[in-house]
Design a protein around this nucleic acid. Structure first.
Length: 398
DNA sequence: TTAGGGTTAG
């Protein structure tokens, strides 16, 4: 980067393209400040200069900065719309993303392309806005965007994350040339919806068709086994990874620790943590602690808890597990110790948040937010949903 | 000769 800046400074005549390339260089090396400075020094700017900088602000999570530029730019094109919409999607502001997606269609001459679709689908999944997702699917078909593999993958993923596995499978079956990522989305889609058997069936079909699995595939397979309590099946595929040229990453070990732990096979889980070629991270330790909590094993919990607190002092779950383990054994001094540590480290529960699609609107609800205008109605909806899940009559469909 | 994108455990 220093080298290219030196070269850039020596250029006798710098054109817009040179400036843009330099700004992009700064943005990609996470030096947005220098990029911004150069942008201010430019004698003339084009759409690319603005969009490069907007993307830079999105990548560092400064959506306000990105939005200010986006609103200020004298002319926009599809790429600049995609940059800001994608920015909101990736920074988990799905409502704002979809607002802009709609605005682009009503207030500009640009129509969503494959990039727009692929960035907006995860936002739809985040909100569980399946009706909107269905509209996107029709749009994709109409515009023949379903030839792109990443569009198909994103659609399968969206349906599955909205809980519509059948729709995901139906669409998956209609895709002619399925890349590894399509299979991954389907396997994982079944897994997250608790359909272990179906996930493994799709995986077998994938192998039979000669499609090469990758590390993401195995995460999906292990996740399916975890949901189905299939410990041996998980071990089998974990060991077989090498046969497919995949070396286990730390998150594969994490899955195995979680699977073994949930099954109460704490000794094996602990041994796996000890023997794996990675330093244990916070996720693995808290998953192991969770298993110790579930199976009432204070000793094993004590062996890792110090490190877990060290890595994730803010993780309230770890304190709660430890506190409860001690409380069960009436070790009140230890209970107090944990509670004191929790206060000192300022660990506290994050608030839960959910959303629901009603007609064409998406409402977000934060747990305990009684000031929400639709709080009473939401409570009623939750009651109806509970009845629905218990299998009683279904007033929602009445 | 420059800008935007999909699948990943709890």
């Amino acid at each position: 980067m220093l080298m290219s800046k030196a070269l850039f400074d020596q250029m006798p005549e710098k054109d817009v393209v040179a400036f843009n390339a330099m700004i992009d260089g700064f943005v990609k090396s996470e030096n947005i400040g220098s990029g911004r400075e150069l942008f201010d020094e430019m004698p003339e700017r084009n759409i690319v200069s603005w969009t490069t900088l907007i993307d830079g602000y999105c990548k560092i999570g400064d959506l306000a900065g990105a939005r200010t530029l986006f609103d200020a730019m004298p002319a926009k094109n599809l790429v600049s719309w995609n940059a800001i919409i994608g920015g909101y999607c990736q920074n988990k502001q799905p409502n704002e993303a979809l607002k802009l997606f709609r605005e682009m269609q009503s207030n500009s001459s640009f129509q969503p392309d494959d990039v727009t679709i692929v960035s907006v689908l995860p936002a739809i999944a985040d909100l569980g806005a399946v009706a909107f997702g269905g509209w996107v699917q029709k749009y994709v078909r109409r515009k023949k965007l379903d030839r792109a593999s990443n569009v198909c993958t994103a659609l399968i993923d969206m349906f599955a994350k909205c809980g519509e596995v059948e729709k995901a499978k139906q669409f998956f079956d209609s895709v002619p040339d399925r890349e590894t990522s399509c299979w991954n989305a389907m396997i994982n889609g079944f897994a997250v919806n608790g359909h272990a058997k179906e996930a493994l069936e799709v995986f077998m079909e994938m192998l039979q068709e000669g499609v090469k699995p990758n590390e993401v595939t195995i995460i999906g397979v292990l996740s399916a086994c975890n949901h189905g309590g299939l410990v041996e099946e998980a071990q089998k595929w974990f060991k077989a990874m090498g046969d497919y040229g995949i070396s286990p990453r730390i998150d594969h070990y994490g899955c195995m620790v979680d699977i073994l732990g949930r099954a109460g096979r704490l000794e094996e889980a602990e041994e796996l943590i000890r023997s794996m070629p990675y330093e244990a991270n916070g996720i693995i330790l808290s998953s192991f602690l969770f298993a110790c909590g579930r199976h009432g094993d204070v000793e094993k919990a004590e062996r890792v808890v110090k490190k877990a607190f060290e890595i994730e002092p803010w993780n309230d779950g770890n304190y709660v597990i430890m506190r409860n383990l001690y409380a069960k054994e009436r070790r009140w001094r230890n209970v107090e110790e944990i509670e004191g540590l929790m206060r000192r480290n300022k660990a506290r529960k994050e608030v839960g948040c959910s959303s629901i699609e009603i007609g064409s609107d998406v409402w977000e609800f934060v747990a305990g937010d009684r000031g929400h205008p639709h709080w009473k109605l939401m409570n009623w909806v939750m009651e109806q949903l509970q009845l629905h899940m218990k299998g009683d009559d279904d007033p929602l469909l009445a």
